[in-house]
Design a protein around this nucleic acid. Structure first.
Length: 412
DNA sequence: TCTGGGGTCCTAGGACCC
DNA sequence: TCTGGGGTCCTAGGACCC
């Protein structure tokens, strides 16, 4: 492995700059997070190829152990392909509640090192470590101690990248994986960055990669050589400026303590496309119930409702509507979802996915205009929500769903 | 092999207002 | 007679990230 488990610098002759603590951006990324949490719950999984993901016919891989990656299994790969590549693998459905708990644990460890923590997802974060210069000999020492603390207090492996440029630290933690630490000393950024494939840059996905390929650009170094004007013609001013900056190792962003969510949504892909109006409405009702529960847990309501549909041919559309007041209870969400559904030309196409979400979030503590048509209805809806919060999604169902539900379960 | 679920941000046209 | 300019919000779609 190119990366050591002890603090290392990138390149040679760089000790001087490290002494000055120039590298204040630390990126930490948990290794195969879901898989490692599952191994903690069931140690017999240690050493085996483990894949966490949707187990149905339309599932994809959410997390794969390094044993599974060794035979080609990757995140976001259809589960069927993973099974073909790795028939001996252990396949597990995700337990997001458990991962959420573990996420809070590791973030507590992060915050015990620095007050400036920016979470990027459940399992990775940036830390500004400039405030630790009096307590540690070097940024590398901070990284080593943080990795040790996460391992001791949460029982999980993590990789760390450190540099003087925010996005370089993220690339460094990736290069350090698994279970490693990499410091890119200030001044060595281009040496580290330019040989990399452009696809690794934040903001270069499949579509942008294809555009860059058409310009003959494969590596970040080649990207750096393209005049921004040329880039702009293909990618537009915003993206081209962003990429030109990254290719020159320029990143003005600071560590921003994470702000609250801007939208909350739920969606579901169905094993078999649904098509009857009844099925669609009932599926929407379930989604609205889940969304309402999430909103109540977060103490939020939304001013804009967004309906998402994906057809059997994968065409995906959305319809949204905004209001002066915010909504959060199931009946209101369902009414609006059906109104939005009425704006869609479905024809005879099957529906593969339905989703419902809200944005324009407001705190429910703060006074809001209710869009309910009667106060009684609101009280009933609130009561139903409270039961759901305590006993789960299926504890309270409108009469139209109960027969259906009993059939599915095959019991009373 | 046939493409999850939860998000963020950007673009672009049109409405609307001053 | 033929049409301002700027700001902001709304809506739809798409790229991208983990």
């Amino acid at each position: 492995m190119a990366v050591s488990h002890t603090p290392v610098g990138f390149g040679a002759g760089t000790v001087g700059s490290m002494d000055r603590f120039d590298e204040r951006f630390l990126h930490i990324d948990m290794d195969a997070f879901f898989v490692e949490v599952e191994r903690q719950r069931d140690p017999t999984l240690i050493g085996l190829p483990v894949i966490v993901g949707g187990l149905g016919r339309r599932g994809v891989v959410a997390s794969a152990s390094y044993e599974a990656r060794a035979v080609g299994v990757r995140s976001a790969m259809p589960i069927g392909e993973a099974r073909r590549l790795c028939p001996q693998g252990r396949y597990l459905a995700p337990s997001h509640g458990v991962y959420g708990e573990k996420s809070r644990e590791v973030f507590d460890v992060f915050r015990s090192f620095s007050p400036k923590v920016e979470g990027l997802s459940v399992d990775e974060a940036f830390l500004d470590i400039s405030g630790l210069r009096l307590h540690f000999a070097s940024p590398a020492a901070v990284g080593a101690d943080l990795r040790r603390a996460v391992r001791e207090r949460a029982g999980l492996p993590a990789s760390v990248g450190i540099s003087a440029v925010k996005f370089i630290s993220k690339l460094a933690s990736d290069a350090a994986k698994p279970d490693g630490l990499l410091v890119v000393p200030a001044g060595d950024e281009l040496k580290f960055l330019h040989p990399m494939p452009v696809r690794r840059l934040w903001g270069v996905g499949e579509a942008t990669h294809a555009s860059l390929e058409a310009l003959g650009v494969e590596t970040v170094g080649e990207l750096a050589a393209i005049p921004q004007g040329v880039l702009s013609k293909r990618l537009g001013p915003t993206l081209s400026l962003h990429l030109s900056n990254l290719a020159a190792a320029v990143d003005p962003r600071d560590v921003e303590s994470s702000s609250g969510a801007k939208s909350i949504s739920v969606e579901e892909t169905y094993e078999i496309d649904i098509s009857s109006e009844d099925e669609v409405e009932q599926a929407l009702l379930r989604l609205c119930g889940r969304l309402s529960r999430r909103l109540h847990q977060a103490g939020r309501a939304g001013r804009t409702v967004n309906l998402k549909l994906r057809f059997g041919d994968f065409e995906t559309i959305s319809r949204s509507e905004s209001f002066s007041g915010a909504i959060d209870v199931t009946p209101d969400l369902w009414d609006e979802a059906r109104r939005l559904l009425g704006k869609v030309e479905i024809g005879r196409r099957g529906i593969r996915l339905l989703g419902i979400g809200v944005s324009g979030l407001v705190d429910t503590e703060e006074p809001r205009q209710l869009t309910m048509d009667s106060p009684e209805r609101s009280i009933a809806a609130e009561a139903a929500e409270q039961v759901r919060e305590r006993f789960g999604d299926d504890a309270v169902l409108p009469a139209s769903l109960i027969a259906d539900d009993t059939e599915e379960r095959g019991d009373g």
